[in-house]
Amino acid sequence: MNKTVNQKAWFLVLPVLLLVAFSAVIPLMTVVNYSVQDTFGNNVFYWVGLEWYKEMALSERMWNALGRQLIFSMVILAIEVPLGILVALNMPKKGFWASFCLVVMSLPLLIPWNVVGTIWQIFGRVDIGLLGYTLDALGIDYNYTQDSIAAWATVIVMDVWHWTSLVALLAYAGLQSIPDAYYQAAKIDQASRWKVFRFIELPKMAGVLMIAILLRFMDSFMIYTEPFVVTGGGPGNATTFLSIDLVKMALGQFDLGPAAAFSIMYFLVILLICWVFYTVMINLDKRDGV
């Protein structure tokens, strides 16, 4: 077969190339550029090679931030995924209350991040916040501006409040796709409630749960706005997550080189995790397709 050669076809991909260039490639290369140079002002740059990368790889400050970040992501996943499944299992399957629940559950997802932060910042205040005042009145020593455990608890509860709905909605969609015959067969086979969950519901939800975990992991790993508004990374560095620390370093201290080097490393970590998820999900699909 003769292929028609038409060089004009390149023009068709040009808009996408431009878009990607300006939105991703050029900004990323700028960061790469900063990460291998140093400046003493006046827009004069010196080549430093991999110096900043070495410094960052050995920087205790960044390792600590990465550690906090990982703990945060793991904790919210460990809470939101089971909780979301539990909520989805208990939602009505059809009728008015099903729609009602769906709407109510979607509400937190619609609120902008910094508004969520502000809500919880006020909610937790001991003087005027309902939560903080109540806890204080109950005799519980709660002050998220001074106590790092209280700060962590607030940030985690806030994230759970904001995002459990997402997991629940995805799990609910997975549950809704299970034909009635499965539940009927399970009754005939005298399967216990736990076995119905383990052998029918969980396998059918596996696909959407992977997506839910991926989304929640990515989002929580890059979290910035909410903890920044509530705790500002404090008390001390207790809730200074990666993004917060990066912003502090890049814009607060104006250490462009180290911050850029760390951004690149941060980017590679996220890319690596994405790749792992992608591989796992593709393998799940393959197992289905055989």
Binding site: A181, Q184, F199, K204
Partner: peptide, 10 residues
């Protein structure tokens, strides 16, 4: 009881 469409525990 056996149903119209296959039900297996995947």
């Amino acid at each position: 009881q056996v149903f119209q469409f296959p039900v297996v525990y995947d």
